[in-house]
Amino acid sequence: MTHREEILQYIYKNPGITFRRLAEELGIGIGNLQYHLYQLEKENKIVSKKLGGKRYIFPKEFEKEYEPLLIAISNETQRKILLLLAEREMNQREIAERLKLTQATINYHMNVLNKLGLIDRRKQGRNVVYSLKCDIEVIVRVISEYRPKLWDKLADKLIDLMLTLKGGELND
């Protein structure tokens, strides 16, 4: 298998992988990887999206509607924010307190999530209240399908959250 075929195969298995992570995981030099990605993009086999100083790489046929979600869940803070908003809508202060981060940090991530089209914002008095735009079940499916390692870590938390949202209980 050629380097380029190996890179393409890895992108198919890990859609939305960042450029740096791809280089690290495949052990390929930056310049070499840039060359192969350029060729793959020219051959119309991959697409890349730049956001927040990072380059995210997807197979050409990847479902466009899931690209923003994969970009967001690849960032731990944004993933945590999405999961918090799946519980209920919150303002920036509440999110900052729950995640034990500064409001400035939360503001940055909320702007990214807004730019990705994953959250809604509405003014409520002096506060801006954020809510999730996408369905939690879609988040669960995307994580389990495209990020199995992450899924293993989050499975119990997500199952509990879904049960809470559905008002159900597990019957033994």
Rank of each mutant, 00 (worst) to 15 (best):
K64H: 07
M110L: 15
G27Y: 08
R20H: 07
Q103K: 04
L118N: 08
I139T: 04
E61T: 13
Y10Q: 01
N114E: 15
D120M: 14
N111L: 10
T102E: 03
V142Y: 02
K49N: 04
I139A: 04
M90H: 04
I73G: 07
G53T: 05
A155P: 00
K166W: 11
A104P: 10
I30H: 10
V140N: 05
K42T: 07
L113C: 10
G168W: 04
I139F: 00
L163D: 09
I11C: 02
R21M: 11
L161Q: 10
F62C: 09
A96S: 08
H3K: 14
D135G: 06
R93C: 01
K100R: 14
N171D: 06
R21T: 13
K64R: 14
E169Q: 10
N127S: 14
N127M: 07
L132A: 05
E67R: 13
L69S: 03
E67L: 08
R126Y: 05
E87L: 13
Q39G: 05
R98D: 05
K80G: 02
I46G: 02
D160Q: 12
L84Q: 10
T18D: 09
I73D: 08
M162C: 13
Q103A: 05
L69W: 01
E67N: 02
D156F: 03
F19G: 01
V142K: 06
A104N: 13
M110H: 11
E89M: 05
L132C: 01
K153Q: 12
G125W: 04
L40N: 05
I7F: 00
